[in-house]
């Protein structure tokens, strides 16, 4: 491989689909465990929680996906992808089988404020499949060698129904763990559901995490964000203590193609993580 090719930022690295996990009953959410074909690419790939990468299916194209695995996980990178009927790449990803080869380039963007979170109480509020990068963050914080660096970890995570909850095994483990106060909720329970029922903003009101010495990470659909920010502000979280991850259509992922900007900022390069203070400045509080 010549130097100019390796320096070409648009070239995806080959990865093998090691494992595919169907996450939900609707079968439109799958987690892909990808392993680099070339060890050098694995070596070069060092991500932080909250970053994303471009997944590339030959013939279909590329799309940006948040990284769902922790930097401390093994020799693989995980992504949870939702399939949209109108989405060319997400549909192509969902047609993949284990052992197939696709492309990956990244990691791109900034991360959750991991350094600022150290020594603080961390609150995580999430709904739907936006939970994926926060799952990476929880896995990272709960790693034995990292856990002492953070104070309390409180997480509220909701899905439409029990069948739509992601990472069910991990949720069960976190529910049983004393390292994290895990609050799982569903919008609509079914006969077998023994947990909480209620929308994420409602549960947030019930849990009422303290804003003292705390940082909150909020990821979810725009409507959930809208109804979550206000109670958080009411609870005393300042706009610069609230962090969220934004999504926009992207093409290059490296701040050149001009597609994903919100105001003067590129979501791919300056984000995807923004404080609510920044969101207010950039887009008048619109997600």
């Amino acid at each position: 491989m010549s130097t100019c090719v390796s320096a070409n930022p648009y070239m995806a690295k080959p990865v093998t689909v090691q494992k595919i996990t169907v996450e939900n009953e609707a079968r439109d959410l799958k987690t892909f465990r990808l392993a680099f074909v070339n060890p050098a690419d694995r070596q070069a790939f060092a991500h932080q929680c909250g970053q994303f990468a471009m997944l590339s299916v030959p013939g279909a194209g590329e799309c940006p996906v948040g990284i769902a695995s922790s930097p401390l996980d093994g020799d693989y990178v995980e992504f949870t992808v939702k399939r949209y009927a109108t989405g060319v790449v997400s549909s192509a990803l969902h047609c993949l089988e284990e052992g197939e080869r696709i492309g990956l380039r990244g990691p791109y963007g900034n991360s959750f404020p991991m350094t600022a979170m150290e020594g603080k109480n961390v609150v995580i509020v999430s709904g739907g499949f936006a939970f994926s990068t926060l799952r990476a963050t929880i896995r990272y914080m709960l790693a034995p060698r990292n856990r002492p660096r953070f104070k309390t970890v409180t997480a509220i995570y909701g899905a439409r129904s029990p069948g739509e909850l992601l990472y069910k095994d991990e949720l069960a483990a976190w529910n049983a763990s004393s390292d994290i106060a895990m609050h799982v909720t569903v919008d609509k329970a079914d006969a077998n559901w023994k947990g909480r029922q209620g929308f994420v903003p409602t549960v947030l009101g019930e849990v009422r995490p303290s804003a003292a010495n705390a940082i909150v990470l909020v990821c979810g659909p725009p409507l959930m964000l809208k109804f979550t920010i206000k109670p958080l502000l009411d609870m005393g979280f300042a706009p610069d203590m609230i962090f969220t991850s934004l999504e926009r259509r992207m093409s290059c992922g490296i701040g050149k193609c001009g597609r994903c900007n919100i105001g003067s900022k590129y979501v791919c390069r300056d984000g995807p993580v923004f404080s609510y203070k920044q969101v207010l400045e950039l887009s008048r509080g619109q997600f």
């Binding site: 030959p58 194209g61 093409s251 290059c252 193609c257 001009g258």
Partner: peptide
């Protein structure tokens, strides 16, 4: 104006990635 998109195309048996202005 420099905004562009990256797209995959299939031409015969060849799958290729195209960068096009948008």
């Amino acid at each position: 104006c420099h905004c562009f998109g990256l797209h995959d195309e299939q031409v015969g048996p060849v799958q290729r990635r195209v960068r096009a202005q948008d």
